[in-house]
């Protein structure tokens, strides 16, 4: 009754093959990451030093460090967050907690999906038209950051919406049935329990924002500046832009220099991602249900 048939043997052999094939595909994913990191560390590593991080570029960007672009990126990311997080979180709260299923909600959701799909260079042109020219911010940190904010808004909205949705409905029911309004429910129960997911979204947005080049290229990032920005209406250098410039447009740059800049940039992003993962794990451990 329970003997193996020829068909069973064949099925099992195919099962084994398929499994190995899929495993290989999955392992191949690691390769690009390892190669990129390996190359950057091998070639850019020797450039790194405390002085590299704390001195501005010199000699027509062929020597010196990356202080100005580094500070510029921090400026851009900070202003972009200040602009996009409140808007994104509020929009997500509306969509998840208030919005009825009607045409307006559907249009908003469609807009978010499309916003996420717009190529970054198109965002850049939008930024030039809207912020640089129409609102007369000029090429400035403000214009560049707002462009970045518009581009990363879907990241914040989607992350926030998902983390709000992961709060069990029973909690809301319990509140509503005691006569709490939606806002009381959100403020006292839903948000405190969704905050880890929201922060994860914000941190992911930071890493995305820090790495983008196209949206800031025409809106606020400078080719080279011999000073630090003093306010949001100044132009600034930025890490991603600096990397692009010294790799393509400046003659006589030592070969290792771009690798060093790239290594710092990717480290910033990786540290941010690691922070977000660690933070999520920490908060999940504290979760009480």
């Amino acid at each position: 009754m329970f003997e193996t048939t020829a068909l069973n043997t064949r099925s099992r052999r195919i099962e084994g093959l398929v499994r190995i094939l899929f495993l290989m595909m999955a392992v191949m994913l690691i390769l690009p990451v390892l190669i990129i990191l390996g190359m950057l560390i091998a070639r850019g590593g020797p450039v790194l030093s405390w002085a590299f991080l704390t001195t501005p570029p010199t000699n027509g960007m062929t020597a010196g460090g990356i202080l100005f672009p580094l500070v510029g990126t921090v400026w851009l990311v900070t202003v972009a967050l200040i602009a996009s997080v409140p808007v994104g979180v509020a929009a997500a709260i509306y969509l998840s907690e208030y919005a009825p299923d009607n045409w307006l909600t559907r249009v908003i959701n469609l807009a978010i999906i499309n916003l996420a799909g717009v190529p970054s260079i198109v965002h850049a042109l939008f930024g030039v038209g809207a912020f640089v020219l129409f609102f007369r911010f000029g090429t400035s940190i403000l214009a560049a950051s707002l462009t970045l904010a518009v581009m990363t808004l879907p990241v914040v909205i989607v992350a926030t919406r998902e983390s709000l949705r992961s709060v069990p409905r029973a909690f809301r029911e319990a509140c509503w049935n005691m006569g709490a309004t939606r806002w009381q429910t959100i403020r006292k129960v839903v948000l405190p329990n969704a905050i880890s997911g929201i922060l994860t979204g914000v941190i992911l947005e930071v890493s995305r924002t820090a790495g983008e080049t196209a949206p800031i290229m025409f809106t606020g990032a400078a080719f080279f500046l011999p000073f630090l920005p003093q306010g949001v209406l100044d132009q600034t250098m930025a890490m991603s832009m600096h990397l692009f410039v010294i790799s393509t447009a400046v003659p006589g740059v030592p070969e290792e220099l771009p690798y060093g800049v790239a290594l710092v940039l990717i480290s910033m992003v990786l540290v941010m991602n690691a922070l977000s993962v660690g933070f999520r794990m920490y908060l999940r451990g504290k979760k009480k249900w």
Binding site: F171, A174, C175, N177, T181, V189
Partner: peptide, 19 residues
Amino acid sequence: LQVRKQIGMVFQRPNPLPL
């Protein structure tokens, strides 16, 4: 909100708040 204050409801599955 007053109706819900006057009428308390208890559910099948206990649903204490995560507080």
